[in-house]
Nucleic acid binder design. Structure first.
Length: 246
DNA sequence: GTTGAGCGTT
C-alpha cells in the first residue's frame, strides 16, 4: 500500500499532479496518501528525495485521477497543518519530462494527428530554465553543493584556467573543447606529470587580446582568492608526496 | 543534529 515512486512513473496520462509544499522533512507519501486519498482517487504519490542522502526535500507530488478531486484536495488540504506544519497544496506546473501540463493535468503528447501538425516534434521549449538557475533551495544544500563541487573541481579548475588564457570564449565552444582534448591527449602521452603544469606563458597574441574590453578577467579571480601555484593542494599534498602503500 | 523556497522518479 505504499509503493509509490518505487518503480518510476506508473502511468501518467490524463492525471492531475498536485504539488505539496511546506511539508515537514519527515513526511512521507504514506502519510499523505491517506490524507489525499480521502478526498479523491490518488493515482500516485512521489516525494523527491536526495540521491546522496535520501532525505526528503520538503515537498511531495500527489497525482490525482480527476481534476475535480484534485481541486477539492487542493482546496481542502491547502492550508492545513500536517505533522505540525502547514502544507501548501497546488497544481504542479512543470512536469518531470516537460509533459503537456494544463492546469495540473498531464496529457499525452500527441495522441493522434488531429488538428495539430505532428511534424513539429520540437517541444523542448517549455521549462527551459525558468528558475532553475536560482535553484538555491536552502543554505544547507548550498553548502553541500559547494562541498561537492570542491571535491571534483580539480579538473574543472585546471580547465577553467586554461580557458582563461583563451581571449575569446565565444568563438566556438565545441571546437574549443576539442582542441583542449586534443592537447590534453598529446600532453598525456608526452609527459605524465600533469600537475607539473608548465608555466602558463602567455602568448603575445594572447596578451594582446587579453583585455579587449579593458576589463581584466583576472580581477574576477581575486574574488575567490587566486590560489598560489606553489600551494596547489596543501591538504592532499602530503599524502601524495609519500607512498604509504609501498 | 541543522535547513524551509520550491516543482518529480525506472
Amino acid at each position: 500500500m505504499s509503493h509509490f515512486g518505487r518503480s518510476g512513473p506508473p502511468d501518467i496520462t490524463d492525471t492531475y499532479s498536485l504539488l505539496v509544499l511546506n511539508i515537514t522533512f519527515r513526511t512521507t507519501a504514506d502519510d499523505l496518501f491517506p490524507l489525499f486519498d480521502k478526498y479523491g482517487k490518488v493515482v500516485d504519490i512521489f516525494i523527491p528525495k536526495d540521491r546522496r542522502t535520501g532525505d526528503s526535500r520538503g515537498f511531495a507530488f500527489v497525482r490525482y485521477k480527476y481534476a475535480d478531486e484534485a481541486q477539492k484536495a487542493v482546496d481542502r488540504l491547502d492550508g492545513t497543518v500536517v505533522d505540525g506544519r502547514e502544507i501548501t497544496v497546488q497544481f504542479a506546473k512543470y512536469g518531470p519530462n516537460a509533459e503537456r501540463i494544463q492546469k495540473g493535468r498531464i496529457i499525452e503528447s500527441f495522441p493522434r494527428s488531429r488538428s495539430r501538425s505532428p511534424r513539429r516534434r520540437h517541444r523542448d521549449d517549455h521549462y527551459k530554465d525558468r528558475d532553475y538557475r536560482r535553484r538555491s533551495r536552502s543554505r544547507s544544500y548550498d553548502r553541500y553543493e559547494r562541498d561537492r563541487y570542491r571535491g571534483k573541481d580539480r579538473d574543472s579548475q585546471r580547465r577553467s584556467r586554461s580557458r582563461s588564457a583563451s581571449p575569446v570564449r565565444s568563438k566556438g565552444r565545441g571546437r574549443d573543447r576539442y582542441d583542449e582534448d586534443r592537447r590534453n591527449s598529446s600532453r598525456s602521452r608526452s609527459v605524465s606529470p600533469d600537475r607539473h603544469s608548465p608555466s602558463p606563458q602567455k602568448s603575445p597574441s594572447l596578451h594582446k587580446a587579453s583585455s579587449p574590453r579593458g576589463e581584466s578577467p583576472d580581477r574576477r579571480s581575486r574574488d575567490g582568492r587566486s590560489p598560489s601555484p606553489r600551494s596547489v593542494s596543501p591538504r592532499g599534498r602530503r599524502a601524495d608526496s609519500r607512498s604509504p602503500s609501498s
